[in-house]
Design a binder for these strands. Structure first.
Length: 834
RNA sequence: GCCGAAGUGGCGGAACGGGUAGACGCGACGGUCUCAAACACCGUUGGGGUUCACGCCCCGUGUGGGUUCGAGUCCCACCUUCGGCACCA
């Protein structure tokens, strides 16, 4: 894309001199340089007379180029930050780079380069692109999560969590992405596929590090008070998925060789316990081998093997027929004394509850399907309302009265839940239990480009945390980082071998690296104190800035980043490191910008609009204003490459108001002298309210209306000089948060002192917004018949008299007398005639 | 399947707790400037009817009902689209 040729001469057609045309690229370059030279956006930790306000937008992943989604997330966020600054706050609005992670490694492998080189190059380029945005980022506070002086503290946070018992190592069946050759957290699997590469995810049993996020499940669930969008809070609540129920123990007929003599299950329907006709274990359940009898061994082993081989997608498909095999063993329902056959089936999840479920086919869809398939009995224990004793044709899930349930017969099911749970408790067979859908956060990654986990394994001392003063554990540069299924760091003899920090004997380092979501769980803390060599964040500085007052970013992070960061903050709070309970007091989720065809932008669809092209062609200010003008920010929508011309035309017209010739004098028509200033103040009232509510699209529309009215006043004749200039100054101030370069240029041309961005947001002058008359609608039977010009405070009698005098109203009434009159001052009068 | 959000001109969208539907902009059409053009400028633009004309009338916010003097806005039922979860016992 090349710079467009300038029109050679007067093209405006109205005879105005336009040798001085708006040249966005020149204007923007000039002011960006001046802002940098004068440190305009440097944010001190404290500023006399101003309260601190922490405004944060999500940092970009260092994928290579800024795309239009970044602009849509960041430019409007900058507008809000600037508005807040003009309203008197000392605003921290930082920017940085989320730089560790799989994509960098995958890209480096594909291009035959090194992840660090690739990432550093991307940061260079992206920083330049971000600066072109003209945002008020304080670049002195930039963070790069892959820099040793950052990930040193990421490692330190790991040790803090370890100290608090929130980091632990466990062997478990975990999600495995074959393409990325690493394990993934639960949150990073979408529809059974890897969130990053889309490959089918399988299962593997490995020793891994976890963060005990479930320890905070109830606190994370209690998010009602947060000023976040309801749908995001709801997503988090659903993700955490709290279920209240009971745990029940079933006695094994034959204890296993390790002395286990029971199987425990979690159920939300303890009222149906008398209807259990089978028990199902997940194929991964630890008792499967023990419980399998010789007769069934071959079949069971084949089933388990097949289950382990199956991808998550296959396992989780709900429209697939149920499968399962009998182990040959039995347990006993303690309530009834009945023998219950023990099956295994892959519809039971190993990672939820106890990995075993009781089968109550009469009152659970899945159990019903399973029992029908394998010919197991389906006894009814909750009677449907007018049940005649016939067998069920489908599971009955509604409440009812207990039958075939011994001493509990006749009890309503809701009541029976409590009664049976108590009964279990009293006999030592179980009791009340709360289960969460949320799993602990798996943070180990068998990949190179991440922060090494600061742990050493010693034959005599066991698992030993690396002492703080030995941090960072640096990532060696010269490593073969191709994925093999074990961490590339394991191949580096130099990295692996280290003396034990406790006994100094030879020991081995942990070679896995941390999930990058760990890096982004605390980056907002580091912005507040980015160069501190002694602390991740100084407590005094934390108190100045945290928590974040306003966070903005995409809601696709609802159950990942936003949940992890909340967990992390609570752990930091419990370690006494940060104030308050939540990291992000307010959060706003912007929508997603789509391709011109209304679909997600992607290279394969060929609908990607590169933001650099838009900036080059129209300037950053027009691009910013257009992204804002498109529609409500939380909605997103298609990017129409033709639509931006409207905003560009508007800015050109606005330019001519200031740079073009205007017939203005102090002696101009006194009757209309105030008109420009009145228009500006009426606009100010709207723009202030709109920016307050993040309704920036209508703020732009209001500003367009203002320039249209001012142009009309100019064209209609001489304007009053003082009023005119006052209106233009207000316009520049209102435009400053939206088009920062353009506004700065106007401000200077209006003879005002540098910088427009250091000015206070103007106050509305109510005497200038008041109107002498308002248009009032006259309705007859609710239908519009005439309009009147009346004083805003005109009383009903006055308006009624005017309405009665209207010929059109009389015609509509057709001689009938109104039986009822509704008068809404300033709005309408409605004459209701039978 | 469950949960959530949303349906307004050719398009993006506006309309504060029920009160002038279509602000603002794109596109389209007509015109101006131009040899010609547009990233220029001016004007028209929801649909239908009627008038020589200024006008005036009717219809219209996904569909069908309802409440109300009055409904894009509130209530009920349904349809469609998008987002989240998806054998969580």
């Amino acid at each position: 894309m090349t710079t467009q040729e300038q029109a050679p001469s007067d093209t405006s057609g109205d005879g105005r001199d336009d040798a001085d045309r708006y040249d966005p690229l020149a204007v923007e370059a000039r002011w960006q340089q001046r802002w940098a030279e004068t440190d305009l956006y440097r944010t001190p930790d404290q500023m006399p007379g101003r309260d601190n306000w922490y405004h944060l937008t999500m940092l970009p992943y260092t994928s290579g180029d800024l795309h239009i989604g970044h602009w849509f997330a960041m430019a409007p966020s900058d507008t809000i930050a600037r508005f807040r600054r003009m309203n008197g706050a000392n605003v921290l609005f930082p920017m940085g780079f989320d730089a560790f992670g799989l994509p960098a490694e995958n890209a480096a492998i594909a291009r035959g380069t090194h992840p660090k080189d690739w990432t550093d190059g991307n940061i260079e380029r992206m920083r330049g692109q971000l600066k072109r945005m003209g945002a008020m980022f304080d670049w002195e506070r930039e963070v790069n999560t892959s820099a040793p002086d950052y990930y040193r503290w990421t490692q330190w946070w790991f040790l803090k969590l370890y100290e608090q018992g929130l980091a632990y190592r466990d062997g478990a069946a975990v999600n495995w992405c074959p393409q990325c050759a690493t394990v993934l957290a639960n949150e990073q699997v979408e529809d059974g596929r890897c969130e990053r590469c889309g490959d089918l995810v399988g299962q593997r049993t490995m020793e891994q590090w976890f963060f005990r996020i479930t320890a905070y499940a109830d606190e994370l669930l209690a998010n009602e008070e947060m000023e976040w969008p309801d749908h995001v809070k709801l997503m988090q609540r659903n993700w955490i998925g709290r279920s209240e129920g009971s745990e029940a123990s079933f006695a094994l007929e034959q204890p296993t060789s390790d002395g286990t003599d029971e199987i425990r299950v979690f159920t939300t329907r303890p009222d149906t316990l008398h209807g259990v006709t089978f028990m199902v274990l997940a194929p991964e359940h630890r008792l499967v081998a023990e419980l399998t009898t010789e007769e069934h061994r071959e079949e069971v082993e084949a089933y388990v093997q097949a289950s382990l081989r199956a991808s998550e997608l296959e396992r989780q498909s709900t429209d697939r027929d149920k499968t399962g095999v009998f182990t040959g063993s039995y347990c006993v329902n303690r309530l009834t004394g009945e023998r219950v056959p023990i099956w295994i089936a892959d519809y039971v999840l190993a990672t939820y509850g106890t990995g075993a479920v009781m089968g109550v086919p009469a009152h659970d869809d899945r159990d019903f399907e399973f029992a029908e398939l394998f010919g197991l009995p389906i006894p009814v224990v909750i009677a449907p309302e007018d049940w005649d004793g016939e067998p069920l044709t489908q599971a009955y899930l509604e409440p009812g009265v207990l039958v075939n349930s011994g001493q509990f017969d006749g009890t309503p099911s809701d009541e029976a839940k409590g009664a049976i749970t108590e009964h279990l408790d009293a006999n030592g067979w179980g009791g009340p239990k709360v289960q969460y859908r949320l799993r602990d956060w798996l943070i180990s990654r068998q990949r190179y480009w991440g922060a090494p986990i600061p742990i050493v394994y010693c034959n005599s001392c066991g698992t030993v945390p690396v002492p703080d003063d030995q941090l960072p554990i640096e990532l060696p540069y010269d490593v073969e980082f191709r994925p093999t299924g074990q961490s590339p760091l394991a191949l580096s003899e130099e990295f692996v071998h280290t003396p034990c920090p406790e006994c100094d004997e030879p020991a081995r380092r942990e070679t896995d690296t941390m999930d990058t979501f760990m890096c982004s769980s605390w980056y907002f803390m580091r912005y507040a104190d980015p160069q501190d060599a002694d602390f991740a964040i100084d407590r005094e500085i934390a108190d100045m800035w945290l928590p974040v007052d306003q966070y903005t970013g995409g809601s696709e992070h609802a159950t990942m980043h936003l949940l992890y960061a909340r967990f992390f903050y609570k752990a930091a709070r419990d370690a006494g490191l940060v104030p308050d309970d939540e990291p992000f007091t307010r959060y706003f989720a912007q929508g997603q910008i789509l391709g011109p065809d209304g679909r997600r932008m992607s290279k394969s669809r060929g609908n990607v609009v590169p933001p650099d092209d838009q900036v080059e062609r129209w300037g950053a200010d027009a691009f910013r204003a257009y992204l804002i003008f498109l529609g409500p920010w939380d909605q997103g929508g298609p990017y129409d490459v033709d639509g931006i011309v409207g905003v560009a035309r508007w800015l050109r017209r606005a330019w001519s108001l200031v740079a073009g010739e205007v017939d203005a004098s102090a002696a101009a028509d006194a009757a209309n002298a105030l008109a420009p200033l009145q228009e500006a103040h009426r606009t100010l009232e709207r723009v202030t309210a709109d920016l307050d509510r993040f309704q920036m699209n209508t703020a732009v529309a209001a500003l367009m209306e203002l320039t249209n009215s001012l142009a009309r006043l100019r064209d209609e004749g001489p304007v009053h000089e003082e009023s005119w200039n006052g209106a233009l100054r207000l316009f520049a101030l209102m435009l400053a948060p939206i088009c920062p370069h353009f506004a700065e240029e106007l401000w200077e041309r209006l003879g005002q002192p540098y910088s427009v961005h250091q000015q206070a947001w103007p106050a509305v002058d109510a005497s200038l917004t008041a109107r002498e008359t308002v248009e009032l609608v006259v309705q007859v039977n609710g239908r519009l018949r005439d309009r009147l010009q009346v004083a805003p405070d005109a009383d009903e009698a006055e308006v009624r008299a005017l309405a009665d005098a209207s010929e059109r109203v009389a015609a509509a009434l057709g001689g009938k007398e109104p039986q009822r009159v509704i008068y809404v001052p300033g709005r309408l009068i409605n004459l209701v005639a039978g």
